[in-house]
């Protein structure tokens, strides 16, 4: 596997959320808005990369029997660092994430990567894998976050939770499109509030996973049809050959 493949695999081919269904708790809980999803994802990128680096650095010294405890301690240390940094520099994000910030410790993704990848590969490969997988996780969170925030408020806000800029700005709003046709109509007043609440999280993630599954099932069906055609063609050729052989035999017998 080249370094580029290693980096890119987390985005689509092995996306942690959409294909492995890992880290579902944060994927449902912190994705009410685009910005909290982005913040959570970036924190996971940091923890995953640094824990992968440290695990691959110390892999020679950790006895095989106690590797899981060691990984848990390493991950928990980085999560504590992240928790303190977030509390110091992005208090709004800290409040919004709440209990899910310390819960990065038990995210299956991080322990899984330490066990399956970092404990077997070099430091550089593990770091690339950590960044790639973490960004793939972020991508998954951000997709859910954008869908939920668009449906619940009709726009995307930025600058409320992350300490960037002075005042929150609206990145995108459905009003911008609709006001081209109807000036006085504000679709933001008719948001589906339920998508910002708990039930909407389940339904939004269900819809996104269904889209992925639809694409996959179509691909599978195409492959299956191609396979069936291939088999039918082979059968036909075999039957023709048999016929020919039988004819030859009949001719030979006739003589």
């Amino acid at each position: 596997m080249t370094k580029k493949d290693n980096f890119l695999k987390g985005f689509f081919k092995e996306n942690p959320i959409f294909f492995y269904l890992l880290g579902m708790c944060p994927a449902l809980a912190v994705t009410a808005t685009f910005e909290t999803s982005l913040g959570m994802g970036l924190l996971v990128v940091f923890v995953l990369t640094s824990s992968n680096i440290v695990v691959s650095l110390v892999k020679k010294w950790i006895p095989h029997d106690v590797r899981t405890p060691a990984y848990i301690v390493i991950i928990a240390t980085f999560v504590t660092v992240v928790k303190m940094l977030t509390e110091a520099y992005a208090i709004n994000l800290f409040d919004a994430l709440g209990v899910f910030l310390p819960l990065i410790v038990v995210n299956c993704l991080i322990l899984g990567r330490a066990e399956a990848f970092a404990s077997k590969n070099t430091v550089i490969d593990s770091a690339i894998d950590g960044v790639g997988m973490g960004l793939g996780f972020t991508l998954g969170l951000v997709v859910i976050g954008i869908l939920r925030e668009l449906l619940s408020t009709g726009g995307i806000m930025f600058g409320v939770y992350l300490p960037i800029g002075d005042a929150p700005i609206t990145l995108f709003s459905l009003d911008m499109i609709i006001n081209l046709f109807a000036a006085d109509f504000h679709i933001t007043d008719y948001g589906l509030k339920v998508f910002g609440l708990a039930p909407g999280a389940f339904i939004a993630l269900g819809i996104i996973l269904a889209v992925f599954q639809f694409r996959k099932s179509r691909k599978d069906r195409k492959i299956a049809i191609a396979k069936m055609e291939f088999i039918a063609e082979k059968k036909r050729i075999a039957a023709e050959k048999k016929k020919l052989a039988a004819q030859k035999l009949a001719k030979a017998g006739g003589k």
Partner: peptide, 22 residues
């Protein structure tokens, strides 16, 4: 439907349960 089989339909069912608990 094939696209909804498995996890997606479970999540939607969970969403409806969640709506009831709300």
């Amino acid at each position: 439907p094939a696209a909804w089989k498995g996890v997606p339909i479970s999540l939607v069912v969970a969403g409806i349960m969640s709506l009831a608990f709300l």
